[in-house]
Amino acid sequence: MSEVKKFLYVNRKAPYGSIYALESLEVVLIGAAFDQDVTLAFLDDGVYQLVKGKNTEAIGMKNFSPTYSALGDYDVTKIYVEKESLEARGLTLGDLMDLKYEDEDDDWAEKDSIRVVSASEMADIMDTQDIVLSF
């Protein structure tokens, strides 16, 4: 297990209507322990997973939004959100949670994990992966 592979987690589904978003996040957290090159992609309805200000109390489900904020502590720092998907849903970066990580190579400076990219940039990101996990 010496070789580092590029793992991409593709999220295209909204949370709560199905369990995919939650259980996908569980894989990301476990996978983080394997010291691989991890990237998360949010496109299509997957962008709803990152929308802030959720309250799940009345639907009786646990709100797992705080887990996304913890990703930086697991060294999951590359979170790409597709611009076209946001725009199609009337969303902007300001509607999303503020996800941060501390950059150990830059005196632990706090940096944004979320990077908004175009569909064409997202295509390039997908193309260069070894393993693409979609749920």
Partner: peptide, 20 residues
């Protein structure tokens, strides 16, 4: 077993294919 078995599968294999 645990989810680590999936990640290990990805690391150890030449190809990982998802059916869902």
């Amino acid at each position: 077993s645990g989810l680590g078995q999936l990640i290990e599968g990805g690391i150890q294999s030449d190809r990982l294919v998802v059916f869902g």
